[in-house]
Design a protein around this nucleic acid. Sequence first.
DNA 1: TTGAAAGCGCTAACAA
DNA 2: TTGTTAGCGCTTTCAA
Lengths: 337, 337
Amino acid sequence: MSRKITMKDVAKAAGVAPMTVSRAFKSDAVVNADTRARVMKAAEELGYVFDSAASNLRSRKSGFVAAIIPSLNNANFADTIGAMSRVLEQHGLQILLGYTGYSVDEEQRLIEQLLRRSPEAIVLTGGHHTERARELLANATVPIIETWDLPDKPVQHVVGFSNTTAMKGLVDHLISRGFTKIAFLGGDAAGDHRGQARLAGFLEALGRHGLDASRLISAGPAPVAMREGALAMQSLLARFPDTEAAVCVSDLSAFGALTECQRRGLRVPEDIAIAGFGAYDISAFAHPTITTIDAFPTEIGRKTGQLIVKLLRSDEVPVDPQIEEIFPQLVVRQSAP
Amino acid sequence: MSRKITMKDVAKAAGVAPMTVSRAFKSDAVVNADTRARVMKAAEELGYVFDSAASNLRSRKSGFVAAIIPSLNNANFADTIGAMSRVLEQHGLQILLGYTGYSVDEEQRLIEQLLRRSPEAIVLTGGHHTERARELLANATVPIIETWDLPDKPVQHVVGFSNTTAMKGLVDHLISRGFTKIAFLGGDAAGDHRGQARLAGFLEALGRHGLDASRLISAGPAPVAMREGALAMQSLLARFPDTEAAVCVSDLSAFGALTECQRRGLRVPEDIAIAGFGAYDISAFAHPTITTIDAFPTEIGRKTGQLIVKLLRSDEVPVDPQIEEIFPQLVVRQSAP
DNA sequence: TTGAAAGCGCTAACAA
DNA sequence: TTGTTAGCGCTTTCAA
């Protein structure tokens, strides 16, 4: 195997200095058009591949944005990452992804690991972190953005929404439609803090209207998906057979709950109404369609990307923490009209 | 803002040479336990963060594995990436993810971009690439693994399965159960080559049994998801109302097709049977449950990760191209019993 | 617009 | 087991 081809080789072939090659490869640098063409031709012929590691080291810019999400396998988070990515790649930034499996300890480990790559910004999901993670983030001198939540004590910037308020809105809707025996199907307290915030909104809405808030079914640790939704519905029907409406922590669990009802011959919404959260595709295509809340994951991603670009541009000037609130929308469909 | 803390600072604080700090941070290096403890303590107190970029440059190891998938928002690919990631992180390797949006041109662009980060291995989805992409890959001196397919002309290593054979098995099953008027709902030829391979398997099975193979509905470019499945079923019922079974390119489109039938009061499978591909969660929870093929995405990911680790270990010794075939399993459920 | 010199922070290679 | 020296490939900085 031959020696690696470097800028020096390209420079020699093109009859210029390495520095000129460097400039030719930087799109916004000042280079004579002919010179650049000559350099690019030489590079192409030699099969030169630009070495980011060396560039990073010298310029102290990694071109990475670290993004940490609970799970890869979740359409909502995938949408956010996709939208963010589309904005960032316009500016030469690449996403370095990590997923926590809904564990703050794993999140801390990921932060430690990702920091070694010198990300230019760090995007987190939610506002719950270990003490050490908060320390690490405080010492990092790059923008930190928390998303998918509206934390009480933000680390720095936020692009998110209140899961509590959003869920409260949905439950208020159910109450306004005359439902009084309403249950919540969700996960346990560990891990999914967004789920807990939704539960808080549920309890708040019921409390305001003086309704019984004891119909709470826990499906165990996150992720709470179809299987867990189906099992939770089984528990619910066993323990509280007279329930009129079941509010689920996500559309996936709502769908699981819905199919469990269908297996038992229960009609939705006539026998029991069901609502979800997240406006996943399935909520629009299930039969019946599922009432849900659209938190606009794509908008979260796009705005997060734009915020990062803005913050990196404003360079050394410290910018006050930005709080961008997203306003989720109630989507009333057949399962809970 | 103060100067960045480097190994030199840690070395001074711990009273050792920078090289000793370097060794202390490398888990498999030979360092006295006391020395290491002292170094780590100093590092912790100073808030030292290891700089991967510098390490990469000098050691010529990036710690990255590039992985390119068609879409982030797809449970099958997410499962593969997740499983691969679990194996690789055990060996200090991090995944650098790119998604093509089902475009080979975008794949080429991604390969160019990812190569700059000096990945230690490159994982691709499928066996269709642009000419230039093949060149780039041929010049890269790292292991290349194609997955989710069994390419005719593999670039190098493969961990995958035959989409054609798998689909043929499913259609053979339908034929053996007496279905003769069978349709295929998929995407168009551009982009999703795995979809095209499945169509080929469909045609092959029908051809072998001398059955009419004209019931082909194209739902347009990938991704073919729930919406496209529903629209395709509309077309199908309009054009070929006497169809007995609809085979869909994926479970998501199968679900869309199923719900379209339900909206129209058609019974599945009595009036029309439906089958999918991929063993997504939804196939097990839909009502009726959906007959599908499990391609074991997790196994693909795990084996790909293991292969990479093995290849990187065997260092300079060139290893013959490895072809690891996965054998998908037919999962017979209610929608096409 | 282009070039020369220096050095980013780490580790390979060698020495002790 | 630990230390010294040099240099990975690029870009900053300054000069022409």
